[in-house]
Write a protein that binds this DNA or RNA. Structure first.
Lengths: 284, 284
DNA sequence: CGGACTGTTGACAAACTTCAATCCGAGTGG
DNA sequence: CCACTCGGATTGAAGTTTGTCAACAGTCCG
C-alpha cells in the first residue's frame, strides 16, 4: 500500500516524526479535520487561538487503558485504533476499529473510568481534549459543540455496524460484510475501495466477527475460491464488488418466518455461487 | 409485574392516559429525569419555561422508522423500546433495548435519515426534542448540553454491551449475560434485580444474542435445569445470582492463546455446573 | 371454532470450534 | 550468516454446538 494516497488534508500539521511524543495544534485544525462540508467554518479566529495537543501513539501502544480514570477525549488524526474490552479471562473482545476523524473515549464521557480500551494498530496521532476543556471549547466555538455531537453520533452508528457483523449469519458472510465495511470506509477517506491493507490480524477480525480465528482463515479461503476477492496475507483486493455485495446480503434464514414464504436456500451460501460458476465458468 | 415499583419520580408528569396522543411538559421535567445526582440542578427557572412535548407510544407502535427523515431526538420517560434494523431480506436485527432515561435517535444526529428503527414493546412515553431546538436548549440551559452528552455516551456504552452478548461464546452463556444485563438495569431503575418480566419475545432475544430462537428456548431450559433461574414464559426469577454471574463469565476458549496456559474446559460449560450439582446436590 | 402467533421440544445435518501440524517472515543471538 | 525462536496464518481431522425443519401445546382474537 502506498501511504500517501489520501487526497485529504495534512496527515499531521507539523512533522511529528522522530522521537517527538507530543505536538501542538489548535482547535481550528481539529475543526478543519472534522468538518467534511467546508461550507463556511465560522469562529475561525477564536478556534485558532485555542491550543489542542496532538499526541503521537506508536504502533502497538495502548492509548486508553480499560478501567483507567478518564480525563480526556480523543480524535484520531492519523492511523488506526482498535477499540476493545478485555474480560477477566483475558479474552479480548474487539468492539470497533476507528480511523481518521473518529472520536475515542466518547463512552467514558459519562463515567469516571474508561469502559473500553483503545490501542494503535499502526503509528498514529490523536488530538487530545481534556474533559474539563470541553465546556469552554463549545462555549467559545459553538460549531465545536455541534461537531462533538456529530462525532458521538457517528461513533454510535459505527458500533451499531458491529451487530451487522456479528449477526446470526454464516461466517463467510460476516467476513464479506466486514470487507465491504472497510471498503466503504476507505472510500470515504479518499483511498481505493478495491485494494487495501488490513491493519489488524486475523485474531482481531475473528473477535469482531464473533468466530474462531481459524474460521476467519477458512472464510478468506472460501471468498478467494469464489473469486470475489484476492488475498495475500493482509493485503486485500476486491475482484467482484457487486458479487461481494450480493453475497453479503445472504442471511442464514432468509426470513425468520411470517410474511411471504421464500425458497429455502442450499446448505452453504457460497456453494450457490460456486455451483453457478462451475456451470458457467466464463460468465464470471 | 407491579407497574408502580419505581421509587423514582413521576412516570408521567400529568396523567396522559385515555386517548391522549400527546402531552406537554417542560425541559425542567426532562432534566429532573436525566439528572441522577440531584446535586443542585441550576437553570431551573429557564428550564421551566421551555416547553417539551411528551408523546405517548402505544405497545407495538413504531416511534422511529428506519430510513425516515430524522428531525427529532427522544428521551424515554416510561416503557421500553426495541432498537433494530431491518435488512432487505426482512430479517430484523435487534441492536438494543432502551428504557427510562435513555436517548433514542442519537445516531441520527449526524444524518438526514434514521439509520435504525425503534418501536415500543409496551405502552410508553417519550420526550420529543426537535433537532432545531437542540442548540437553543443547550444555550439557554447549559446543563442540558452536558446531559445530552452523557445520554449519548450512555447510548454508546449500551451498544457496546451488545458485543458482550453476541461474543463467540456458547448460547447459554450469552443468555445468562443477557439476563444479568437486564437484572442490572432493573436495579438501576429501582426495581427488583431478581424477579422481572421480559418485555420482549424469544425471537427478539434470539436476534440480539445472535442465535436461532429455538436455541434461546433450549438455553432457557438449560439454565432452569441448572437451577440458576426460574422461568415461566416471560417472567424470570434469578435463583442463584452468584452462580449465574460465575456462569456468565465462561468463555468458549478461556484464553485464545498467549500468556499462561490454562486447563482445557469440558465440552459444555453447563455440564460442569450440572456435574458439580449431581455430585453434591445439597450444596446448591 | 379456526387461524395466527408464541414458545417448547425432538431429530438430523450443517457449520463451527477445537486441537494439531505446518509454513512463513521477522526478530534475536550465537 | 545461520540457527533459533516466536507469532501469524493456513489447513486438516474430529467432535460438539447450533441451525433447521417439523410437530405440538397454549393463548389470544375474530
Amino acid at each position: 500500500m502506498n501511504p500517501s494516497t489520501s487526497p485529504a488534508t495534512c496527515q499531521t500539521p507539523r512533522s511529528v516524526s522522530g522521537t517527538a511524543q507530543c505536538g501542538h495544534s489548535t482547535l481550528a485544525d481539529l475543526m478543519r479535520m472534522l468538518c467534511t462540508d467546508t461550507t463556511g467554518i465560522p469562529d475561525t479566529q477564536q478556534a485558532a487561538e485555542m491550543a489542542v495537543s496532538l499526541r503521537r501513539v506508536p504502533a502497538g501502544a495502548t492509548l486508553i487503558h480499560m478501567g483507567a480514570s478518564s480525563d480526556a477525549l480523543y480524535f484520531v488524526c492519523s492511523g488506526t485504533f482498535k477499540i476493545f474490552r478485555t474480560d477477566e479471562d483475558g479474552y479480548e473482545q474487539v468492539l470497533a476499529f476507528a480511523g481518521r476523524r473518529e472520536v475515542l473515549a466518547f463512552d467514558a464521557l459519562c463515567m469516571e473510568t474508561h469502559p473500553t480500551a483503545a490501542s494503535a494498530l499502526e503509528d498514529s496521532t490523536v488530538y487530545v481534549i481534556r474533559k474539563v476543556e470541553l465546556h469552554d471549547f463549545s462555549r467559545s466555538v459553538p460549531a465545536f459543540e455541534h461537531e462533538l455531537q456529530r462525532a458521538g453520533s457517528r461513533a454510535l452508528g459505527r458500533t451499531n455496524e458491529l451487530a451487522e457483523l456479528m449477526a446470526a449469519v454464516a461466517a463467510e458472510v460476516r467476513l464479506a460484510r466486514f470487507l465491504l465495511l472497510l471498503s466503504r470506509r476507505m472510500a470515504t477517506n479518499g483511498q481505493s475501495p478495491r485494494r487495501f491493507h488490513l491493519r489488524m490480524g486475523r485474531r482481531d477480525i475473528a473477535s469482531i466477527l464473533g468466530v474462531a480465528h481459524e474460521t476467519v482463515s477458512r472464510s478468506f479461503t472460501a471468498l478467494v475460491a469464489a473469486r470475489l476477492v484476492h488475498v495475500s496475507d493482509r493485503d486485500v483486493e476486491i475482484l467482484d464488488m457487486d458479487g461481494l455485495k450480493a453475497y453479503s446480503r445472504s442471511t442464514r434464514r432468509a426470513q425468520d418466518e411470517g410474511g411471504l414464504v421464500r425458497a429455502r436456500r442450499p446448505a452453504s451460501p457460497l456453494a450457490m455461487v460456486q455451483k453457478a460458476q462451475s456451470l458457467c465458468p466464463l460468465a464470471a
